[in-house]
Every structure is written in structure tokens, then in C-alpha cells.
Design a protein around this nucleic acid. Structure first.
Lengths: 343, 343
DNA sequence: TTTTTTATCTAAAACGTTTACGCTGTTAAA
DNA sequence: TTTAACAGCGTAAACGTTTTAGATAAAAAA
């Protein structure tokens, strides 16, 4: 069923029917009702392709999700982020178009997407420090919102939704310091990524406040997998002066850390303390009412919702001023932290 | 830059330029070269919307990924599945359109997608037993491939890519039986899903071969989260006749099982054996060269590739006969299984 | 030489919407 | 009574492609 057929069926012009359906005022309420009813009855939905061509907008947003080259890892937080964003899109009747591409082809992909005209805007995932994609998107004049920030001084010049990574890790580190820990290992994500760099900065700042110099031997930075958590924990514990506490950048390496500790019969929260960052993933909940891991928690799903929200606004009215949403992480106390063991 | 401008610039008609770019034979090699070059120079890409409208095909495929209602969990294997499928799509220059929708709105979503005409085909995720979506898609004549099967007798009538769930779990259970285990717990996924039902069937069949009746008290079936693995393991171990071995349907509940066992100071592979099903997720690798968990392994990413492959064929030529790909899982031996403890 | 075929290109229709503009009749203002 | 405003609807153009049906000229066949 298309517009022409529907309008013939109703004895009206295509114009009137279209206007009735799209809520334009130049049509009487009586006819609008008739049209709406007929549309429902013959379940007519405007053809997206034709509508897009006519309006110049595709009613879709793009997500380019980077595939890390070395290990072919695609970040698992995306499922929850997309679930959050999707809530907003489906409310606004927008489509979500995603491409998973190796990081070295990202710029190319954005360019292509733009010239094909298949989306009205994009979400930038996993910004690196001084990420070139931002400059690119601005140049081709494509509305975008960044999940995270890109460091640099131009953070005011584009819209983003970020978590206060520095503050979260500063608080977590401080919490451990207050418990008497002095050697604290950091099992971080890749530090050319802005979020990881900021977390490290927070860690460093807390140490500095206690007059402690950051020890590079206690800091690791890799793709956040379970096996990385396992290997890094082992490596740190095998060092000359093993840490009494650990910070991991996600719950996933924490599983690896737990495995390593178990093998050594070290008890979490007693022999070694552990604080994780918890993205509140639906399939990896950190406990129920009571958290298991002591954690800095910030919902990535919520971030997804907010990014989508901001982008929708930007698309609806491109003159919308840029907006920044800085989410604060909660510090929640679980069973994996305790006073530093006396040695 | 659009077709009209490009053709005027070249002094040719739009027809000729279009044909040159799309590789039609009615154009001389000389002009084709010229056209190609000019297109590159002014980086012209045909507008997707216009092309779709003209050809009637959208060059996009849809993935409707179900959001479990009760717990709002979106299955984490999707990221890897999508990564696999995406490889194929980008090779064929197809777009991937995804919607995350609560299970009760799935049928509605498919219908909408079809009438909007925004995709040329869909992948069906997470089929339940006798899933109504299959009938629906057939009725509205939308090409589709199912990841998994839907039970029932009509499995021959549509294309699917599945893992041999029954066989995998039969082998795993047999392996435990051969090691002397007689009480084996099954920590399964939701059993109205076909994959989970088939896994249970395999488990049952192996037990039957040893003359053992399945004990419902040893079988759990829920959303496969870490906390579920933890709770289920605790419940089983607290039962009157605790199991000496466990099977989990994914690596994620296995993390929970490990946590529960650690708390009881039970050693994996000695006090309690554990076999998992391993989807070979990039961010949750089951060890490196040496596997950690004994597991039945089948790559969900590979399944993604194959589904996409099949769907592309079906779209290119709708008369393509249905195809079935049944992947066999490897049984890989890790450190979490050993002989049943004497009691 | 005339006819047929072939190679190369073009004009215009089609895809299904939205929307700028125009028309008619009715009501309100002058 | 005349003019203006307005509500309600229709006509036709536009969006940027692909594709059908021809057109022209050159080459081959008769």
C-alpha cells in the first residue's frame, strides 16, 4: 500500500493525505481522522526511501564502532550503550545504522557514510586523545555527539557525554590510600584512549596528594580482557614489591585478577584489595542489592541514552548550542576492599 | 556532487555516467575510464536514498536484537556476532541496521521494518521454540536467515546457521561421566529458547546412555549472567546431594560459579569439575594457547559471518534454495575438569 | 547501393514521498 | 457591498537515482 493507492481509496489528493498523516494544520480534523483510520486499517507506512529522498533526511543515525586491530576485540560495553541509545531512537522513530570497522578505516568510513547520505548524524565511540575524527566530522558538517572526550583544548567546541574518569579514579585510589595501602597496581585500558589517560591521571593525583610517586612498574595498559587481567595481576604480584591493592578499568579484567589471586590462595579484600570500574553492564552485574566488587559505577546504558538524546536535538535543530554532560561515578563499597595487610 | 552535475561536467548524459559507474556493457571503455576518474576526483558517491528508491532495494540488512524483558539483559554474544556479520556486509557494501527491542514488540518491529522498506532482509536472533517470527517473515515475503533453529518440523523450510547444541552437550556430559561423575549440575540458559532446550536434551541423552535419570533438582535455566551462575552454583551445592560437576551454558555464569566455589574453598578441577560452552568471544577469551575452562567451543563470530553470507546470497537471488549450516563444537580440555572425587 | 546489425549514447519515465504554490468558497473586516 | 483573510484542499514540481525505449552513426551484410 502506497500513498497514491491510499489517497485514491479515500478520494483525496496525495497532498492532503500526506499532510493529514504528518500533522499539518491545513487539513480539517474530520478528514484527518478518516485518513488516520484508513492508514491503520490498510497498515500503511510511508516508504522510508522515498520520504528520505523528498525530505533530505534519512531518519537514521550512525554508530561506527571501532574494532581494535591487534586483538580483534570489539568492546563489550557497546551492547549496553546501544541498548540505551536504542530506547531513544525507537521513541523518535529513528533507525540505527552500525558499522564495525578496524580503527585504521574509521575516517574513511565516516566520509563514506556522509557522502552516501544514509544518516543524519553519528555518535563517536572510543575517542582517542586528539582524535582526528572530530575535526573530520566538523569539516564535512555532520552532526555528532562524542561518547567520551578527546582531550585537547577544543573540548568546548563539540557536544559530548562523558564520565568523570579522573575524579572517579582519584576517589578510588584515595579510598585505598585511606585504608593504608601504599603500593597500588593500576590495570588500565589502552592509554592512548582518552578515558584511560584520564583514569591514570586521577590515580596519579591521589598518590601525589599522599606524597607518593607513581611507580610505572605498577601500571599496566592494555585491551581490557579477562586474560589481560589475569596476566597483569600475576606480573604485578611477581614483582619485587608486589602491590597490596589493585584498580581495574572494567569488571572483565577483574575476573582475570580474581582467577590469578585464587590460584595463589590470596583472599580478595583481605590479602589483596580490588576496586573496579563498573559500567553497570546488564549481563555482568556487579552483584544484586549488595555489590560484590568495590567499584566506581557509572551506567554506560544511561550514557547511551544521553548521547542519543543530545544527537536527536542537534539533528532537529542544528543551531542547538553544544552541550556537555559529565556524569559522576558512584563509589560503592563491596567485599573486595579492606585495610592493608601489616607486613 | 550529484549525478547531474557530474554528467554536465563531463558533457555526457546522466544515463551514460550511471551506466559507466555501474559496469554496464553499453559504454565504451574509453568513456568509462574518463567517468571513473572524474568520479574519483570529485569524490562522487551515488546518494543511497535515491538509488534505493530507484532500484527498490535498500542495500541494508536488519538485525532485531531481543531485549529480555524481566532483567533487561541484552545478550553479550551479539557484539561478536555483529562483528562477524559486519565483515561480510562491508565487503558487499551493505549497511547494517539494528534495533534493540523488548521481546514482546519483536513481531511488530519486523512488520514495521518491512513496510518501511528500509532493509532487504533480516537475521533472526535468539529463536524460541516454534518462534512465530519465522511464519511472519515468510508471510510478508522478507528474505531471512535464522541464527539457530526454532525446533518444530519445518526446520528444512528456511535457512539457518546453528551449532550442534545437542551433540556438544552430550559429549561434554559423557566426558564428565567417563571421569566418574554421576551427579552433574546443568546451569542452562532459558529453556524456551531452542538452543537451551537442545542442550538440555543432549545432557539428558548422555545421562540416559549411562542409565541415569535426569534429576530436575540439578538443572537450572535462567538468563546467563554472572550472578545467576553464582546463585545457581550455591543452590546446587547446598542441595541434599550436591553435584561433583557442573555444565554452564556460557563463560559468563562460569565466572559466577568460580566465585561461589572460591568462597567455599573448593578447587575447580579437583573438588568440582566444570565444563562451559565457549562462544569464543573476543573480550572473554577462554585462555590463550592453553584453555582455562574445559569447554565446548564454537565461534559465534564465525556464525555471524555465515549468516551474513547466506543472507547476501538469498537477497542477490531470491530463488536460491534454503541452506543449513550445522557447526560442530570442539571439545577442548582445560584445567577445570578432573576425576570425580571419591566420597 | 541498400539493408541490417552493432556500438554508443540520450531523453524521459519511474520510484514514493514532501512541499511550494494556487484555487475555491466562506467568513470577518471595512 | 466590497475587500480581505482564511480554512481546506488540489496541482505539479522536486528529491537523485536507475532504466526503458529510442536515436544516431558507423560497420557489416546483402
Amino acid at each position: 500500500m502506497n500513498l497514491k493507492e491510499l489517497s485514491e481509496l479515500l478520494g483525496l489528493s496525495q497532498t492532503t493525505v500526506s499532510r493529514a498523516l504528518n500533522g499539518y494544520p491545513e487539513v480539517s480534523e474530520a478528514t484527518r481522522k478518516k485518513v488516520m483510520l484508513a492508514a491503520k486499517d490498510h497498515n500503511y507506512t510511508p516508504n522510508t526511501r522515498a520520504r528520505s529522498l523528498a525530505t533530505g533526511r534519512s531518519h537514521a543515525v550512525g554508530h561506527v564502532i571501532p574494532l581494535s586491530l591487534e586483538h580483534e576485540v570489539v568492546n563489550p560495553v557497546f551492547t549496553d550503550f546501544l541498548a540505551g541509545a536504542s530506547e531513544i531512537y525507537s521513541r523518535e522513530n529513528y533507525d540505527m545504522l552500525i558499522s564495525v570497522v578496524p580503527v585504521d578505516q574509521e575516517a574513511e568510513t565516516y566520509r563514506k557514510i556522509a557522502s552516501k547520505g544514509s544518516v543524519d548524524g553519528v555518535i563517536v565511540h572510543g575517542p582517542a586523545i586528539n582524535d582526528p575524527r572530530i575535526e573530520l566530522l566538523r569539516r564535512i558538517n555532520m552532526p555528532f555527539v562524542v561518547h567520551g572526550r578527546s582531550g585537547g583544548d577544543d573540548e568546548d567546541s563539540y557536544s559530548w557525554v562523558d564520565m568523570n574518569n579522573t575524579r572517579a579514579f582519584e576517589r578510588a585510589t584515595r579510598f585505598l590510600l585511606d585504608l593504608g595501602h601504599r603500593r597500588i597496581g593500576l590495570i588500565n585500558g589502552l592509554e592512548h584512549m582518552d578515558f584511560a589517560a584520564k583514569r591514570r591521571a586521577g590515580y596519579k593525583r591521589a598518590l601525589a596528594a599522599y606524597g607518593i610517586e607513581e611507580d610505572p612498574a605498577l601500571c599496566r595498559a592494555e585491551e581490557m580482557t579477562e586474560s589481560y587481567g589475569y596476566a597483569a595481576t600475576n606480573a604485578l604480584l611477581d614483582g619485587p614489591e608486589p602491590p597490596t591493592a589493585l584498580l581495574t578499568s572494567s569488571i572483565i579484567p577483574a575476573f582475570g585478577a580474581r582467577r590469578a589471586l585464587d590460584e595463589r590462595a590470596l583472599v580478595l579484600g583481605k590479602d589483596v584489595s580490588l576496586i573496579i570500574h563498573d559500567d553497570d553492564l546488564s549481563y555482568l552485574r556487579n552483584g544484586g542489592k549488595e555489590p560484590i566488587y568495590t567499584a566506581t559505577r557509572s551506567s554506560v546504558r544511561q550514557a547511551g541514552r544521553m548521547c542519543a538524546e543530545l544527537l536527536m536535538q542537534k539533528i532537529a535543530d542544528p543551531s542547538t548550542p553544544v552541550r556537555h554532560e559529565l556524569l559522576d561515578a558512584d563509589l560503592i563499597i563491596g567485599e573486595t576492599t579492606g585495610p592493608a595487610p601489616q607486613s
